[in-house]
Amino acid sequence: MSSQLIKNNFRMDRLPHIWCPGCGHGIIMRSMAQAIQNLGLDKQKVCIVSGIGCSSRAPGYMDFNTLHTTHGRALAFATGVKLANPELKVIVVTGDGDCSAIGGNHLIHTARRNIDITTIVFNNNIYGMTGGQYSPTTPTNDFGTTAPFGNIDKAFDICKLVDGAGATYVARGTAYHVNQLTKIIEKAISNIGFSLVDAISICPTYYGRKNKKGTAVQMMNYLKDSAVDTKVAEKLPPEKLENKFFIGEFKNTTEPEYTEEYMKIIKKYQKER
């Protein structure tokens, strides 16, 4: 008793998932499944890898080749999977903390290598699973259980971070703008090289409650009102962009891909022997 999309792409015996009421992760996970289905990928040729955290539960629910790894190391495992079997479409599901704090080093170096891996960051601005500690994407002055007087750190813009590090496809979507998110994920998966989608989620249970952001619906409305498409933003005066964040495609380029370069080296030296 569920839609065809869910039946075709999820492990039905694992559903319903255990994410909190109103958690945006379910919306993003469905969007991922929709994107994979729209691309018509062979399920046997898709491998979804995750680390630790709320987001990282996703592969457990998804009916593909899946790998649930250690905290922050999803990209390291994914690199291994991709090099061992370059045929696979490797998709990494990670959270803001998992990817930019614990796995920050893996993130920048995977981007630098431009290896053909698609990373979907379920970004909810907090560590949800462990009880609401502030993460590298918690905005300055916001609260977390480990920042009871306000967070003095500056937040990472994960898109700018991986853009600078060498990713070839970088985009941001939200749990509110679902159709756009699905299209972005499709393009990210199709890109040959390192792609990252910063998918802005909502966490009503921890981030929302700690920062008095209201209900799941109010948090969805915040995404609706505060997200500005990059293409539209170019035409708007700066005063209209105050307290807004940008969504859409930031980078879409082509550069030599790591596994292909690696295979070239192997071929070159096999010939010489």
Partner: peptide
Amino acid sequence: CELRCPDYAIYLEGSEDE
């Protein structure tokens, strides 16, 4: 409703590509 339901609890039957 189907697009934004985080729990896949509401859907249009026959809306998917069957």
